[in-house]
Computed example of a mutant assay.
Amino acid sequence: MKVNGLQAEMQAMKLEAQNTTRPATGQQVSSDFGAVLNDAVKTVNNLQSESSELATRFDQGDRSVSLSDVMIARNKSSVAFEATVQVRNKLVDAYKQLMNMPV
C-alpha cells in the first residue's frame, strides 16, 4: 500500500469536495460512497493476495523473496483488514442508530 498515493488521492478528494458548487443529491452521494467503499475493499483484497503470494513464493524457496518482505506484506494486509473491520463496525453502529431514531 503506497502511503504517498493514498495521501494524494485523499487531497484530491478534499479539493474536489471544496470545489463543488452545486449540492449533491442523495443518489450521487450514495453511489460515490459505494464506489469508494468498493475500491477500499478491493485494495484490501489485493494486499491480502500479494501477502499470500509472497508467503507461498518464500515457502517454495524463491531466493528473490526475503522473510522481511513476507512479514511486511503480512503486516500491511493485517492493518488494512483491521481498518476495514473498524469502518464496517462504525457503519453498522450508525445504521442501528438511524433505525432506532423516532420518526
Rank of each mutant, 00 (worst) to 15 (best):
F33P: 00
P23E: 01
A40P: 02
G5S: 09
E16D: 07
M99Q: 10
S77R: 04
Q97K: 11
Q86V: 08
E50K: 01
S64T: 12
I72A: 15
T20C: 01
N75F: 12
D62K: 15
M13S: 12
M1E: 13
T21D: 00
Q28P: 06
V44N: 01
V70Q: 00
L67A: 14
G26L: 08
K76Y: 05
K90A: 07
R22K: 13
A17V: 08
S51Q: 01
S68A: 13
L98R: 12
A94W: 09
D32K: 10
E50S: 11
E82Y: 09
S68C: 06
K76W: 08
D69S: 05
V3I: 15
A80Y: 01
D39E: 14
D59N: 15
D62G: 04
E9I: 14
Q18F: 10
V29H: 11
N4M: 12
E9N: 09
Q7C: 09
Q27T: 14
F33V: 13
F58H: 03
R22H: 13
L91D: 06
D93C: 00
T84C: 06
S77P: 06
D62N: 07
S52Y: 13
R63L: 15
V41F: 05
P102S: 15
M99I: 12
R63K: 15
E9V: 12
G5C: 02
D93K: 09
R22W: 10
V3L: 12
Q18N: 12
A94Q: 15
A40R: 02
M13N: 14
D39V: 05
S31N: 11
A80V: 01
L15K: 07
S77E: 02
Q60T: 14
